[in-house]
Design a protein around this nucleic acid. Structure first.
Length: 592
RNA sequence: GGGGGCGUGGUGGAGAUGGUUACCACGCCGGCCUGUCAAGCCGGAGGUCGCGGGUUCAAAUCCCGUCGCUCCCGCCA
C-alpha cells in the first residue's frame, strides 16, 4: 500500500492536470470491457474517474483489470490524459480527462452485491438497512451525511459565535416516569436499581442555568421507548439550548438567526426572518393542526351560519351541544369523484370524525352530498369563500375533533391536488398553547408541555380557578407541517412550581422523589431562564427534501426498533443477567 | 393495541379469472467485441413465490393463521 497511497481523489482531476502521474484509491464503480481497451470507473467520496487500460497493456495489468469487479477496492497509478474531443463526457465533473493505467492493485475484493451502488438505491429499505455500509456508499447517502456534518458544524459555529458553551450531560440519568416511556439501564453495583437514558437533557440544562452557564447548548442524543414513525426514532438527536435572563423573544431571535445562518451556509438559501407567529387556537381553527403545513393556503372556515336553522339534524345537534361545524372549501373541487370524496371521509374518520359532509356548487345551485339539507344556505356557503365549481367539506363535532379531522383532510388535499410549493420552507412559531390539558381517562389536569413551563403572567394569580384557560409561555417551531422544535420559559420559583404540581395532582412526596434535586437547586438563586430544542434529524430531513428521518441517520432503526444490520436488540448471556440480578419472566402467551 | 400497503432467483419488478418448464431488467459466470461511460452482442447458472396450515385432481394465485418491513390512528411531557 505504501507506494500506492492516493495523491488525488476521484473527483478532482481536470484538463489542466494533463500529463501528471497520479495514484487513485477507490472502489470499482462500473467496468466496460471492449475486448481490447478496458474501462474502469473508480469512485470515492469525491467523485468518479475513468481509468483506461490499453489493449496492449502488459499481461499482469490485463489480469488485474479483469479481476477487478464491481465494488472491489483498488489502487490505480497512471498518467492523466485529455480525452479526445468527441470522447469528453460533459455529465462527469472529471469528464475531460481519463487516467491511463500503468498499475492496478486489488486492495480488497468484493462479494456479489445484494444491490447496486447507484445514485439512489432502488433496493427496499429493509435490504438497504441490512447492508447499510453499502447503502452509505451511494452519492445520495454520502451527500446527506455530509449535509448532516455541515449543519451540525454551522450550528456550533453560530451558537459559539453568540457566546454559548457546549456542555455534555450524562446519558445515564435518573428515571422520571411521566411523559414518554424511559429506556432503562440496570445497575450492577446497585442491584435492583436502574439508570434511565435521557428523553432530553431537560433537568440538567436547567441545573446548568442555576450554575451560571447562562448560554448552554448541546447536540444531544435523546431516547424514548415509544412506537417509531417516519419522523420519529427511538433514538434521535436534538439541538438542546437553554438561556438565562431571557424572554421568549430572545429565544425566537436566536433560533431565527441560527436557522438563517444554517440554511445560508449549508444550502445557500436565504430564509425570511423573523418567522410568522400563530396562536395555537388559530393554528387549530384555521389549519386544523398545531403543526400546520403553511406551504399552501386552503384554510378551514366556520360553518355555524350554514348549520344554524338548516334543518340538518347532525349540524344542528352539534351546535346545540356546544360543538362546531368546520368547513373546508376546495377550489375547483366539484370535479372530485364520489370515490375521492369517500377517501377523504376515510381520512377524517381516522382522526375521530363521525363523517365528512359535502356539497358541490353547481351552476344551478348546490349539488350532491347534503345539498338537499342545506340547499337554502347557498348564500352562507358562498360567504365561506366558495364559488361555482367548488367542493365544500364539513365536519361537525367537538371543536377540537372537527378541526383535527378537517385539518387531516386539508393535508391530504394539499398532497393529492399538488397544492404544495415544494421549494418553500414555511416556518412559523406556534404560541399561546394551553398550559394544562384535561385528561378524560384519569379525570385530572395534566401538563400540556412539561411541568416546568411558566404560565403567562396574566394567568398566574387565578391559575387554580380555571386551569383550562391558562396559557403557557411555551412555543413550537414548525416547518412544512413538521414540529421542528419545542421550548418554553421555565419556572424558577419553587412556590409557583409547587402550585403547578398541586394542579396536576402531583404529591409533594412524588415531586420530592423525582425532581427534589431541581427544586433544591432552585432555592439557591435560580435565574429566570428558558430554552428550546430543535430536532436535528427532522431539520435535516427537511433540508434534504426527504420524508423519513431514517434517510438522514447513518444507522437508523426500523419502526419496530430493530437494527437490521447488527440485529439489535438481542438476547444476552445468562451470566450477564445474573450479575445484574435480572430474570426474564415469560408471559402467558409465550408459554402456550 | 387497531387499520391500510408490501413480501416472487443476489436486487428491483411482472405474473393474481387456480392449470404444462414462473416472465423481464440489472447483477453473477462463460464467450465475442479498440473508445465506452446505465457500453453492446451471444450463451449459462441461479427460485421449496416470507413462513405454517387448509380447500382442490392441481395453489405464487383462493381461505385461515403467523412473521417481517412500511404508512397511519393510539402512544410520543
Amino acid at each position: 500500500m505504501e507506494d500506492l497511497r492516493r495523491d488525488v481523489t476521484c473527483g478532482e482531476l481536470r484538463a489542466g492536470d494533463e500529463g501528471r502521474t497520479v495514484t487513485l484509491n477507490g472502489w470499482v464503480h462500473r467496468t466496460r470491457d471492449h475486448g481490447g481497451v478496458h474501462f474502469l470507473n473508480i469512485r470515492d467520496r469525491y467523485g468518479i474517474t475513468q481509468v483506461v487500460v490499453a489493449e496492449d497493456a502488459p499481461a499482469g495489468l490485463q489480469r488485474a483489470t479483469e479481476t477487478a469487479k464491481l465494488e472491489y477496492c483498488v489502487a490505480v497509478r497512471g498518467a492523466v490524459r485529455r480525452r479526445p474531443d468527441d470522447m469528453v463526457n460533459p455529465e462527469m465533473a472529471t469528464g475531460e480527462i481519463e487516467v491511463s493505467a500503468g498499475q492496478i492493485e486489488i486492495l480488497s475484493p468484493c462479494a456479489t452485491l445484494p444491490f447496486m451502488i447507484e445514485e439512489r438505491s432502488e433496493a427496499r429499505e429493509e435490504t438497504r438497512l441490512k447492508y447499510r455500509y453499502l447503502d452509505l456508499r451511494s452519492f445520495s447517502m454520502q451527500r446527506k451525511m455530509a449535509l448532516r456534518s455541515e449543519v451540525t458544524f454551522r450550528i456550533r459555529e453560530y451558537l459559539r459565535g453568540r457566546g454559548f458553551h457546549e456542555i455534555e450531560t450524562p446519558t445515564m440519568i435518573k428515571s422520571t416516569p411521566e411523559g414518554a416511556r424511559d429506556f432503562l439501564i440496570p445497575s450492577r453495583l446497585h442491584r435492583g436499581k436502574f439508570y434511565a437514558m435521557p428523553q432530553s437533557p431537560q433537568l440538567y440544562k436547567q441545573i446548568l442555568m442555576v450554575s451560571g452557564f447562562d448560554r448552554y447548548f448541546q447536540i444531544a442524543h435523546c431516547f424514548r421507548d415509544e412506537d417509531a414513525r417516519g419522523d420519529r426514532q427511538l433514538e434521535h438527536t436534538q439541538i438542546d439550548i437553554e438561556m438565562s435572563f431571557v424572554s421568549k423573544e430572545d429565544v425566537f431571535e436566536l433560533v431565527e438567526g441560527m436557522m438563517a445562518h444554517t440554511f445560508r451556509r449549508a444550502l445557500g438559501r436565504e430564509l425570511e426572518i423573523p418567522f410568522p407567529r400563530l396562536a395555537y387556537h388559530d393554528a387549530m381553527n384555521r389549519f386544523g393542526s398545531d403543526k400546520p403545513d403553511l406551504r399552501f393556503e386552503l384554510e378551514l372556515g366556520d360553518a355555524s351560519e350554514v348549520a344554524a336553522g338548516s334543518g340538518f339534524r347532525v349540524f344542528e345537534d352539534t351546535i346545540s351541544g356546544g360543538g362546531s361545524v368546520k368547513a373546508l372549501v376546495v377550489p375547483g373541487g366539484a370535479r372530485l369523484s364520489r370515490k375521492q370524496i369517500d377517501e377523504l371521509e376515510g381520512v377524517a374518520k381516522t382522526y375521530g370524525a363521525k363523517g365528512l359532509a359535502w356539497t358541490k356548487i353547481g351552476e344551478g345551485g348546490l349539488e350532491g352530498g347534503i345539498s338537499k339539507f342545506v340547499g337554502e344556505k347557498e348564500a352562507e356557503i358562498r360567504s365561506l369563500g366558495a364559488a361555482t365549481g367548488d367542493l365544500v367539506l364539513f365536519v361537525a363535532d367537538r371543536w377540537n375533533t372537527a378541526c383535527i379531522a378537517l385539518g387531516a383532510v386539508r393535508s391530504r388535499l394539499g398532497r393529492d391536488l399538488d397544492l404544495i410549493d415544494r421549494d418553500r420552507f414555511a416556518f412559523a412559531w406556534i404560541v399561546d398553547f394551553p398550559l394544562f390539558e384535561w385528561d378524560e381517562e384519569n379525570g385530572t389536569w395534566e401538563a400540556a408541555h412539561h411541568m416546568f413551563t411558566m404560565p403567562q403572567e396574566q394567568y398566574i394569580d387565578s391559575m387554580e380557578d380555571d386551569p383550562g384557560a391558562v396559557k403557557g409561555d411555551l412555543y413550537d417551531l414548525v416547518c412544512n407541517g413538521y414540529e421542528l422544535a419545542s421550548g418554553s420559559i421555565r419556572i424558577h420559583n419553587p412556590e409557583l412550581q409547587q402550585r403547578i404540581f398541586d394542579i396536576v395532582g402531583f404529591s409533594r412526596e412524588e415531586a420530592e422523589n423525582r425532581f427534589g434535586f431541581l427544586m433544591e437547586a432552585f432555592r439557591y438563586g435560580a435565574p429566570p431562564h428558558g430554552g428550546i430544542a430543535p430536532g436535528l434529524d427532522r431539520l435535516l430531513m427537511i433540508l434534504a427534501g426527504e420524508e423519513s428521518i431514517r434517510e438522514v441517520i447513518a444507522f437508523p432503526k426500523t419502526t419496530a426498533g430493530i437494527s437490521p444490520m447488527d440485529d439489535s436488540p438481542s438476547v444476552v448471556d445468562e451470566r450477564q443477567l445474573e450479575e445484574l440480578g435480572i430474570r426474564i419472566v415469560e408471559t402467558e402467551e409465550e408459554h402456550s
